[in-house]
Write a protein that binds this DNA or RNA. Structure first.
Lengths: 72, 72
DNA sequence: TTTTAAAGTGCATTATATGGCTCTTTTGTA
DNA sequence: TACAAAAGAGCCATATAATGCACTTTAAAA
């Protein structure tokens, strides 16, 4: 699934800030169980949930125009 | 809700490309009913649904680091 | 090692997103 | 105006996201 990269962003940012899943769950208002699911590669988060997590980590969920440059 | 801006992106892009809701629904695989809901300001789309719509429109769902005014 | 905090999982319940069908409202055009 | 296409909304069945609780696994420190 595509949101894997979104979750990766969450996880990387969380770890960069040295915040535990539990703390992030508390700060964001997202259930710990839910956050664990995402970071272990499962689930299909809603925009609201992604926003909550993003807000707590200083990340903003956006649509970017895909520039058809080369590959990655 | 925050995903309003995401939906706005979808809608603006769709209209810019002169694609109807129905066509976008077909192209993206998202139900027409669901797309209508979003564009009329309701609902809480999942990452998967946002991705489907984004893919059909050349938009990519990403997390951006929030820069408060000046930073690098 | 042993201990312990953090992370991951199974199960059950509740809340809600999805999507088809149908009808109404809005909008653009002749 | 009138008409047709597009957009919006109500109803509702189904699928699944969110969540808590209890348990297991992992990893890092003592």
């Amino acid at each position: 699934m595509h949101f894997k990269s979104l979750i990766r962003s969450i996880k990387e940012r969380r770890e960069m800030l040295q915040v535990t899943q539990e703390t992030l769950a508390d700060l964001s208002g997202v259930g710990l169980r839910t956050l664990k699911q995402f970071e272990s590669g499962k689930g299909n988060p809603t925009a609201e949930t992604l926003n909550k997590l993003g807000n707590a980590l200083g990340l903003e969920l956006t649509f970017q125009v895909k520039t058809t440059t080369a590959e990655e």
